[in-house]
Computed example of a mutant assay.
Amino acid sequence: MDQGNQLFTLALGLVPPWAVDVVRFTVEEKRLDLYVNFSRGSHFPCPVCGQDCPVHDTQEKVWRATLLKAWLENARTSDLPPIVRVAYTIMNHWDGVLRWFESQITNGILEGFNSLIQSAKAKARGYRTHKNFINMAYLILGKLDLRLPT
């Protein structure tokens, strides 16, 4: 480990097996990237049973939350009411915003399903039973081809 990596490891308070592996700074982007890694063959406590277990796979993570929090602090204290509203909206939906960074999945598909169900409900002007309504939702959302063979 070179001195720069060792300095960042100490500054972040990392303890073995964790250490800063790579440090990249780009002046043009005003960006500092730190890659934290662990020694090969390290064991970590299992979240379920607590026993030390080997690592089978890893996934690179980006600390976007830290950057977003810094932006939110600046946005909340700005004198621009729309920016302040956006900051408070993000804070109120914090878990969902961070989850999007991990999964990149939105609720757009669910909104589309809801739209189809609402249009079916409007077309029928009510169903005799809840069971009939649920069956109609399955038929519409299932996109079944109910045409007779020719």
Results as ranks from 00 to 15, higher is better:
C53I: 09
A19I: 00
P16C: 02
T9F: 00
S39W: 10
C53P: 00
D52I: 00
G50I: 03
P17S: 10
P17G: 04
Q6T: 08
D21S: 10
H43S: 14
P47K: 04
R24N: 13
R31L: 15
V36D: 04
P54W: 03
V55H: 01
P45M: 11
V23Q: 02
W18P: 00
C46H: 09
H56R: 13
P54M: 06
K30H: 14
L14I: 07
Q51I: 08
E29C: 06
T9D: 02
F8K: 01
V20N: 01
F25H: 10
V55I: 10
F8D: 01
P16E: 12
A19E: 12
D52W: 04
F25Q: 05
P45D: 10
T58E: 02
V36E: 05
G41D: 11
P45H: 07
C46M: 13
N37W: 07
V48Q: 10
V20C: 04
R31N: 13
P17V: 01
V36C: 07
V15Q: 14
V15C: 11
A19S: 13
F8N: 01
T58W: 01
V20Y: 00
D21T: 04
H56I: 12
L10V: 11
V36I: 15
C53Q: 15
P16A: 07
R24Y: 05
A19M: 08
T9A: 01
R24W: 04
R24L: 06
R24G: 02
G50C: 05
N37F: 05
A11R: 08
P45I: 05
L12I: 03
Q6R: 08
V22N: 03
S42F: 10
C46Y: 09
V27L: 15
R31I: 07
T26L: 11
A19L: 12
H56Y: 14
V20F: 02
L32G: 07
G50Y: 06
D52M: 11
K30G: 14
F8R: 01
P16G: 02
G13N: 14
E29I: 06
F25Y: 15
D52L: 12
Y35I: 10
S42M: 09
D33I: 06
Q6V: 03
P45L: 06
V27R: 15
F38R: 01
V23G: 01
A11T: 12
A11Y: 11
L7A: 12
T26C: 13
T26E: 15
V15N: 15
Y35Q: 09
C49Y: 03
K30S: 13
P47N: 05
V27H: 15
P16M: 01
Y35E: 12
V22M: 04
P47D: 03
